[in-house]
Structures are given as C-alpha cells and as structure tokens.
C-alpha cells in the first residue's frame, strides 16, 4: 500500500521584503493509488510546480500534509523520483555515470550497477550510448537519460514537471509513447505536469485541471486514452471523437481562466 495522499495541502508564499502573501495552493486533497497515471493541467502560475515540489519534498507546505505509503513527506527521498523539464543532467559525467548516479550514492556493487545501467539504457532506447558525454546528446535523448537515471533507483512515484515541454513535436510524440510503455512495464505511480492539453489527455488515466488564485483542483477527469495508448497508435487516438470533445471542453475552461486573470490584472 504505497498510495500518495494529499490532505488539505496548502502553500502560501510570503515576500520577505513587502510581506505580501501569495496563496499558491489552497486545500489540495487527493489520493493517488499505486500504479495510477495522473496528469495535471492548468494555466501558467496556478501552482502545478509548487504542488509537485511539495510532494517531492523540496518545499515544506504551510498547511496540511502529504503522505506516501503512510509516511509524511518532509524532504526529498529516493522513493520519489524527479524528472525535470531540462534533464538537469550532470554534464561533466558520461551517460552511464549519470544513469548510475543514484546507485553510486548508495555504494552499490559496480558489477551489479553495470548490469542495471545496461538494462535501463536498453529500455529507454540508448543502448551503446553509455560513454557518450551528455552534452553531445539531443534534447530527446537527454530526457531519456533523465528517465533512466530516475527509474534505476526503483522509486515508488515518478514526478515529472513538464518533461517534454522543450522537445520538438516529433520527438515529443515518441517520448509520450515511451512514458506510456514505461508506465505499463514498471507499474509505477506517475504524476506528470504538462501545459499541453493533448499530452494531458494522452498521458492521464486521471487528469486534474487546476485553477489559479488560490491554486486549487478545479475539475477532475477519468480518461480511457492512456490505457488505449498502450495498444493503439497515439495519432489514431487523437482523431477520436471523444478525445476531441474533452480537449475542446478543457481548452475552453483554461481559456476562460486565462481571460479572468487578464481581466483582473
């Protein structure tokens, strides 16, 4: 039972100079069961990153708490793996040293490490790139390294903050398939933040649309597309009528939120 539970999670930022307070998140409640795939969507500044950072343990909430498998989250930990928008790879290390970084930190036997690295490079499609310096890789390949580096640690939850945001359309589609594949093969709980509605629909078994000021979960969906994506082509799913319907609905929702922000500003 390693469910991720957020109860009344709130975050208020106070500007130390002016004393002005920003309610970045207010009373977030949800439970993510083991193996669920959640995508989070919302206009810019609605608190998606803040939410993820609190679950990752980089930020301490000002109200409520979150637990993983019953343990309160109060700092970063190996059971919650992170994938950032720009890889955040260690450019001074070659691919294999990036991937086995977590193993080296806990002094895993080198021979075993080597096997694991090879296995994961294989899975993310980077066989033979072990000795390549990371700065020589393309953006998509760098994200693959980041995924392998995170997965080799065998975390319970994988947290991704706009992991595909900086990739071109073609690479992005390939990476979306990869994420789905990994989800299926590893059965990990995944929480993925995106600002692309299509991506949120494709990569979300569950989908939260968040609203700003204060940041909150505005609407929740349960969607069939991720399941279907495991067997069907993603492009076919995008042609689906139901898919278009939901996409339009959410786009209108976010559009309205943006309008409101602009109006208020």
């Amino acid at each position: 039972m390693s469910d991720l539970v957020c109860s009344d999670l709130s975050m208020t930022f106070t500007n130390p100079q002016t004393g002005a307070a920003v309610e970045a998140l207010k009373d977030i409640n949800f439970t993510l069961k083991k193996g669920e795939l959640l995508s989070v969507l919302g206009p810019s500044g609605c608190g998606k990153t803040t939410l993820l950072n609190m679950i990752a343990g980089f930020l301490i909430p000002t109200g409520g708490n979150s637990t993983l498998g019953g343990n309160v989250i109060d700092g970063p930990g190996v059971e919650r793996g992170m994938v950032f928008q720009q890889g955040a790879l260690f450019e001074w290390l070659p691919v294999s040293k990036n991937v086995d970084y977590g193993l080296r930190m806990k002094n895993t036997d080198p021979a075993e490490s080597r096997k694991l690295v090879e296995k994961w490079l294989d899975i993310v499609g980077l066989q033979g790139f072990g000795d390549t310096p990371t700065y020589q890789l393309s953006g998509g390949m760098q994200q693959r390294v980041a995924l392998a580096r995170c997965l080799i640690n065998d975390p319970d939850v994988i947290l991704m903050d706009e992991p595909l945001g900086a990739l071109d359309a073609l690479t992005r589609e390939k990476m979306q398939s990869l994420v789905l594949e990994l989800w299926k093969e590893t059965g990990k709980t995944i929480m993925i933040i995106t600002h692309s509605v299509e991506e949120a629909l494709l990569l979300g078994e569950r989908l939260f649309v968040m609203a700003p000021r204060p940041g909150r979960i505005y609407k929740e969906y349960n969607l069939p597309f991720a399941e279907r994506g495991l067997t069907e082509s993603l492009r076919d799913i995008k042609q689906d009528e139901h898919f278009s319907e939901v996409r339009e609905e959410i786009l209108t929702m976010i559009w309205d939120m943006e309008e409101e922000i602009m109006g208020r500003a």
């Binding site: 980089f58 955040a88 930190m105």
Partner: peptide, 12 residues
C-alpha cells in the same frame, strides 16, 4: 534543478 535531482537520487 541539478541539486534537486541529486537530492531525489538519494545524495547526502
């Protein structure tokens, strides 16, 4: 982000 990644990968 590099420091955070390292933290999440279990570094002291």
């Amino acid at each position: 982000s590099k420091i955070r990644a390292a933290h999440s990968l279990g570094s002291t």
